[in-house]
Design a protein around this nucleic acid. Structure first.
Lengths: 223, 223
DNA sequence: AAAGATAAGCTTAAATAAACCTTAAAAAGG
DNA sequence: CCTTTTTAAGGTTTATTTAAGCTTATCTTT
């Protein structure tokens, strides 16, 4: 499995090369976006890991460039903060996943494994469960009763639930992954958004709802 | 859940012990790397939190040492801010995650949860004994007679029993591990929950019940 | 060895506390 | 402005704890 890594911090670059190598990937690494584009358009990689902030060309632009050139390989974006804008930008421009720094190496490996497993981009841009689908690019939730646009937070809640439909996700986990560790919002905001998501699911007559397991968290169920 | 904390700054050490204790971990704390190695090789911990800069032996060396000794427990490394080299060394040497100081306590707890979750939920999300299984993610107990959801406390009682089916667990141990060291609830609450667990086991027609050994504690038996 | 006495454990119902829901309105941000 | 997000408050439901009366095993005494 061949990976291209684009990361300008020398130490992190070196370390990630070591990690990937240790896990039986063959890695080429570059230190800026232009190099990344060159390698990706000319070489044959199974996956790319791109930092956002890089000299000469940022990761998002690099990604857009190679997508325009017809490259469909799975791409994982590294962002410095949990900047929603970066994230949306990344997904719009055809990223398959993103990871905010700092991250656990195991998580990086898991995500790389996940996106290389599908190996087709765009196909997985929609999530499906029950009779409804959620578009990752447009935030549109559609079901027999029509379609409705979700707001950012609503989308992230439902995305997390739909990408692991049998898992139980605790309000604290939502808080951590969506609002971030340093958020000082009350946990109650999760409850509010669960209500909103339920309303929108009902509005499009989805046969799916968000079930709460008191003391454990939320999970999706088909009614 | 047992944690070993190695941190040489006295105030931070004390504060973290307090935080972990409050969150129902049992913590042992040490102040240098050599002690950390001793405790970790001889004791039985579920997780370790190691500072990098410590007297006698640094955290990275301690980590490498225990990994060489075959310890696979999840380890989180604490590094002073922006010491990238330390961070990298940590990842190379087998750390599961790292956190740069200063950090938010919430984030520390979240990361410890994350790396220990792999331990419990990741591989072995279900417990089995006799003809019944208990799902760690949904708190669902299932057996030939159907399935039923356990509450938090019920789940923890049964989880402890099922993860060591032949062991006898005293009411005091339940109290300590589930309600916490500083709980001022009466021990009688354990009797109450044992009753509830028995009822639910019967409800799903499990061939398992909670046997009490007077003066000793409880254990599971197959009827 | 039988009769109480004592303590350990059992069960239930009611009271309390915590988790969760919903709505409306205020605040933040484009 | 208009939309999204957060806060706040009151309401509902469910989990947890308390408390009290109960059973059963073990121990004491005769």
């Amino acid at each position: 499995m061949r990976i291209l890594l684009a990361e300008d911090e020398p130490e992190l670059n070196r370390a990630l090369v070591a990690v990937f190598t240790k896990n039986n990937y063959s890695v080429d690494s570059v230190f800026d976006g232009e190099e990344a584009v060159t390698y990706l358009t000319e070489g044959d990689y199974d996956c790319a890991v791109l930092d956002v902030m890089m000299p000469k060309m940022d990761g998002i632009t690099a990604l857009k460039t190679i997508r325009k050139a017809g490259k469909t390989l799975p791409v994982l974006i590294l962002t410095a903060k949990s900047e929603i804008d970066d994230r949306i930008l990344g997904l719009d421009s055809g990223a398959d996943d993103y990871l905010t720094k700092p991250f656990a190496v195991k998580e990086l490996l898991a995500r790389v494994r996940a996106i290389t497993r599908r190996l087709t981009v765009g196909v997985d841009a929609n999530l499906t469960y029950g009779n409804c689908t959620l578009s990752r690019s447009s935030y549109l939730l559609s079901a027999p009763g029509g379609e409705v646009r979700l707001t950012n937070k609503e989308f992230q809640i439902l995305e997390m639930l739909m990408s692991a439909p049998s898992q139980v996700i605790s309000p604290e986990t939502f808080m951590e992954k969506i609002w971030g560790f340093d958020s000082d919002s009350d946990i109650g905001v999760v409850w509010v958004y669960v209500t909103y998501v339920r309303k929108k699911l009902a509005q499009v007559k989805a046969n799916v709802n968000v079930k709460s397991l008191r003391g454990a968290g939320y999970t999706l169920e088909i009614v």
